[in-house]
Design a protein around this nucleic acid. Structure first.
Length: 727
DNA sequence: CAGTAGTTACT
DNA sequence: GTAACTACT
């Protein structure tokens, strides 16, 4: 049992022991949790590695590599300040934290907020658990300019589109908190009874590929600052001009640093603002435009957290459900061709090869390949998002969910669904000279620029001269754009039919509840995910060969995932090893076996091999203890802010909220879809009574009315600060 | 002013 | 490639 905290008055005395729990805030500068720990006295810095808790979103190889490097960097910084980083391998973060409390005598726990759905639940649980054990638990904003609950419209409701959200952020009455300097020194607590585990982030097969990464990237918060300075004093001024070039380092390249919190976004914001002032004085219009565009991309990152916080299922469920019945193409061969860069569209293929080889992709090209995935191949977007998650160096659940939802047309302000971007035209836009394509598709290296983005149109002699045999050493288009357009229209027709049938079924349904729980079918993701074919185009043939090269970029298999179970028993079975040679997170690490089978009351979880995370709203709801309270005292800037979940009925609010979100242009052109969906969703059948007369009210497309509906609808999560009880 | 050419597109 | 918006004749 930990020593009970004697001072619960809110002011931690200056000689108490604090755990500073590092997560995705791997820096000593502008780290409010660390600063609070230093202020309070003795510090135990701890990082807990519990990837199994992430379920499906188990970090990919390159992401794990970055993390391992970043932790080394942080550890050396902390050591030079006086306190090393304790690293723990865990299968249950909460019980590991309790262990750390017990072995160090800590009375405070400080950490910085995260906004992904898993963290929201876990952190809330941990706060409850440790508070109940007498600890002072305080959490801070280190990841955002403004906390999600600080940014609301004039009615106090969350925004549902980006533009007004970002305008509001830029015109807040107070500036984002000024960045904190690093502590001058840290007084370490006695951690002799709290030894570190050796964390293993790569296995043998991954080592070679990872060594290459170090040539291109330098993780760590000091390196992040260098990269920031280099960008601000270099490419930033030409950002507006250069950002459309697929090739070359004209973007900031800061996203992996930001993902792991090596860089404070508030510091980025402040430094960039200074440039804006300078260029405004100099009347440098393109410089100003560049800054505003770059800030907008910072804003999109903010918005991704904002969305995730307000709609914690945005990574697995469309925000607008008007495509709920869309018949996606469930074709693993298409998926494979896309991953391997063998679709026959040079810009798409070049992008996929680059991603595969480097873990990096220019923002434009991400749009191109994901749009192709959703619109041309019509594969389920969550496959694509998962693949991005597994392969991107800056894989970020919130950002990627936002991106894929945008591409898929399931955001209120997204693009229309039935618009297909043509990679041929995008190719000449983003890669006018074909340099990017030739770099990643050497088989096309001798093809003239005139044909580089549409080799299928090239005359036979040209192809011959270039050494290209379509269908042999470079594929013909896997799907024609015109065929994709037709298929989209057919599929939409089919979707409306299914919807109508479903609505009819609902009308005849006497029992309630069937509809909502079935909204989210278990996430099926193809299991055989490797990069099988040899990526080197000179040797590649058109067939999807099955030569396996495990040493290269692989998508880690879903070896084990948490499945939230309805029973409150935990059975952890991590040890069962895989027979095949797939990449997986190594498990040969030191960990305490007693955490292994630990039971706790609400984190019920079962690890099953090859199980896929199922994390449905209904189940989440069951897991949360909702608070009755709500509060509007959002004034406190930091410290003690722990979001508390408080809706009465999660799924109901979520769905009714969907209906009031401003409709997209697509819906305006297809009102019948919208009408049906809303009609169905707005209230369960048994409350409908007459039915007919309720429907028209709910799908009114008048945007003013719609925004009022947003305003009136109960927010999905009413967060408030429960810390008055604790501090 | 209408019509046309040129441009830019997006979370 | 299409839509939507600018600037110019």
């Amino acid at each position: 049992m930990p020593p009970a905290s004697s001072s619960n008055g809110g002011n931690t005395s200056n000689n108490s022991i604090s755990i500073v729990w590092f997560r995705r805030d791997l820096r000593v500068e502008d780290n409010p949790a660390l600063a609070a720990g230093v202020r309070a006295g003795y510090v135990v810095s701890v990082f807990i590695w519990a990837p199994e808790e992430e379920g499906t979103y188990f970090p990919g190889r390159v992401s794990r590599w970055w993390l391992s490097q970043s932790l080394k960097h942080l550890d050396s910084s902390l050591r030079s300040l006086g306190a090393n980083l304790i690293t723990k391998r865990s299968f249950d973060t909460a019980s590991t934290l309790v262990d750390v409390v017990n072995s160090t005598g800590a009375t405070n726990l400080f950490f910085n907020h995260l906004y992904d759905p898993l963290s929201l639940v876990r952190d809330h649980r941990i706060k409850e658990l440790l508070s109940s054990r007498g600890l002072t638990v305080r959490s801070f904003n280190a990841d955002l300019l403004y906390e999600p609950w600080e940014v609301a419209d004039e009615n106090g409701c969350p925004f549902s589109t980006f533009e007004p959200f970002w305008n509001k952020c830029l015109s807040m009455p107070y500036d984002p908190a000024a960045p904190l300097l690093p502590p001058k020194r840290i007084i370490s607590a006695d951690v002799s009874r709290c030894p570190s585990d050796t964390l293993v982030f790569e296995d043998e097969s991954e080592r070679g590929s990872n060594a290459l990464l170090a040539r291109a990237w330098s993780p760590g918060w000091r390196n992040a600052n260098k990269a920031l300075n280099a960008f601000i004093n270099g490419p930033l001024i030409d950002y507006s001009v250069n950002r459309r070039k697929a090739d070359g380092a004209t973007t900031s390249l800061l996203s992996p640093h930001l993902h792991f919190g090596e860089l404070s976004v508030r510091k980025v914001f402040h430094l960039v603002q200074i440039k804006l002032l300078v260029w405004t004085n100099e009347e440098n219009e393109s410089g100003k435009e560049s800054v505003n565009l770059f800030l907008k991309s910072i804003g999109l990152r903010e918005y991704s957290r904002y969305l995730s916080f307000n709609h914690p299922f945005s990574h697995e469920r469309p925000l607008l459900s008007h495509l709920k019945f869309f018949p996606w193409v469930v074709d693993e061969n298409y998926f494979k061709a896309w991953r391997q860069g063998r679709t026959g569209y040079p810009l798409v293929d070049a992008g996929m090869r680059e991603l595969w080889a480097t873990g990096w992709l220019h923002d434009r090209i991400r749009v191109v390949v994901s749009s192709f995935f959703v619109k041309v191949l019509q594969l389920p977007w969550r496959w694509g998002m998962k693949y991005f998650w597994d392969t991107l160096l800056d894989a970020d659940l919130e950002c990627d969910a936002l991106g894929w939802q945008y591409i898929s047309g399931t955001l209120p302000d997204g693009r229309e669904f039935d618009r297909i971007d043509n990679p041929q035209f995008e190719g000449y836009k983003f890669d006018p000279n074909g340099e990017y394509v030739r770099r990643w598709l050497p088989e096309l290296i001798r093809l003239p620029t005139e044909w580089i983005h549409h080799p299928w149109d090239a005359p036979e002699p040209v192809l011959q001269a270039a050494g290209i045999e379509l269908g042999s050493n470079y594929p013909l288009p896997i799907v024609e754009i015109s065929a994709a357009k037709e298929r989209i229209q057919e599929a939409l027709t089919e979707m409306w039919q299914i919807e109508t049938a479903s609505r009819t079924a609902m009308e005849n349904e006497t029992e309630e509840g069937l509809g909502d729980s079935s909204d989210l079918p278990p996430f099926y993701y193809p299991q055989e995910i490797h990069m099988e074919a040899d990526p080197e185009p000179t040797r590649a043939n058109n067939l999807l060969t099955t030569t396996r090269r495990y040493s290269d970029q692989m998508v880690p298999s879903i070896t084990s995932s948490f499945v939230r179970n309805d029973e409150d028993a935990i059975s952890v079975d991590i040890s069962s090893t895989r027979e095949d040679g797939r990449a997986e997170v190594p498990t040969n690490v030191n960990f305490d076996d007693q955490t292994h089978g630990a039971t706790d009351q609400d984190g019920a979880a079962v690890v099953r091999n090859n199980a896929v995370l199922e994390f449905s709203p209904a189940r989440l709801q069951n897991r949360l203890e909702f608070s009755e309270e709500s509060s509007s005292s959002y004034t406190e800037r930091d410290g003690g802010l722990v979001p508390v979940w408080s809706p009465s009925n999660l799924s109901e609010h979520f769905i009714s909220e969907e209906t009031s979100v401003r409709t997209s242009a697509y819906l305006q052109r297809h009102p019948q879809t919208h009408q049906m969906m809303n009609w169905r969703q707005i209230s369960p059948p048994e409350k409908l009574g007459g039915g007919e007369h309720i429907a028209p009210k709910c799908y009114r497309l008048d945007s003013m009315k719609a925004s009022q509906n947003v305003a009136k609808s109960t927010p999905l999560f009413l967060y408030h600060f429960a810390d008055s009880k604790v501090l």
